[in-house]
């Protein structure tokens, strides 16, 4: 009796699921963004962007939050999102996996992005022009495992300076998860040294979450290309001819300071896949791409 009830329930449930799946396959343009900082504020940051894109493109646009850089790439690869705000490395990975996808825009600061090496004041380290070799033997935290400014570039410079992998250079190596957390961990002393995105550092200084008496910058990397908006190659087929172009111009003409602040960028400029060739080469050298 109960077994039968359960079987019926499961069957009904399965039918509902299937029909629901077919009914709502209507074309909605969806985008995501890598969770690079202040994860609790992600929705607040990007729902505004979704609203802006909805009005400008005159169609339903939604933002889906993801938990990791890899999840952003996977969603893009599986066409669960068609547009994404990637980092340099995640963008390269995503575009390698989706044939025909292109980088269409980047922040004004992105062609010359920087990583800041930061240290707790207890280390006594101060800002230097050359790579601070005195960080050897200290505890060190990267940001997310898949981050360009929090992992790839700092690891590249560490390997170059010491000729060894970070695990052999430092007494302990961690991955904080995102840039604001890297700053918090170094500031609290949980790690002595860390590497973070310079935009996140400057934002933290401006809004007072960083205490300069506890943590300071000890080295700035040379510039490299970083964040980008990338779009799938098949959007024109799915959303009408010229759709990718429309999205690009919507992004480039975004000038509301409140919207731009959430990235944070001054404005967006055009980008193309070849801009990120140096990132791909570095990732290959460090062994993060096969």
């Amino acid at each position: 009796m109960t077994l039968k009830a359960i079987i019926v329930a499961v069957a009904v449930a399965a039918m509902t699921a299937l029909s629901a799946g077919q009914a709502s396959a209507a074309e909605k343009f969806v985008f995501t963004a890598i969770p690079d900082q202040d994860e609790s504020a992600l929705r607040k940051r990007f729902d505004k962007v979704a609203k802006y894109l909805s009005t400008t493109l005159k169609r339903d646009v939604a933002y889906v939050p993801v938990k990791s850089y890899a999840a952003a790439v996977t969603a893009f690869r599986n066409n669960q999102v068609q547009l994404a705000w990637f980092g340099g490395l995640s963008g390269v990975r995503a575009r390698k996996l989706v044939k025909g996808s292109t980088a269409i825009a980047q922040g004004k600061a992105d062609p010359f992005f920087e990583t800041y090496f930061i240290a707790n004041v207890s280390t006594g380290l101060t800002l230097s022009k050359d790579f601070p070799k005195a960080i050897a033997g200290k505890t060190f935290t990267f940001g997310s495992k898949g981050s360009t400014s929090g992992r790839l570039m700092p690891e590249f410079h560490i390997r170059k300076a010491f000729g060894k992998v970070p695990q052999q250079v430092f007494s302990r190596v961690g991955f904080s998860g995102n840039h604001s957390r890297t700053v918090a961990l170094v500031q609290s002393g949980a790690y002595e040294v860390g590497a973070t995105n310079f935009k996140v550092w400057k934002k933290g200084l401006a809004n007072g979450t960083i205490d300069p008496k506890k943590v300071r910058v000890i080295w700035k990397t040379p510039g490299y290309p970083d964040y980008n908006w990338s779009i799938r190659g098949d959007v024109d087929k799915a959303f009408g001819a010229g759709f990718a172009k429309k999205v690009q111009s919507a992004l480039l003409s975004m000038n509301d300071p409140d919207l731009l602040k959430s990235f944070p960028r001054a404005s967006f400029i055009p980008a193309q896949n070849s801009d990120y060739a140096p990132i791909e080469a570095t990732a290959r050298e460090v062994g993060l791409i096969d």
Binding site: T2, A5, I6, V8, A9, V10, A13, A14, T16
Partner: peptide, 9 residues
């Protein structure tokens, strides 16, 4: 239980 399962789906 059946209602929960349908609700869940």
């Amino acid at each position: 239980l059946p209602f929960y399962l349908i609700g869940a789906v």
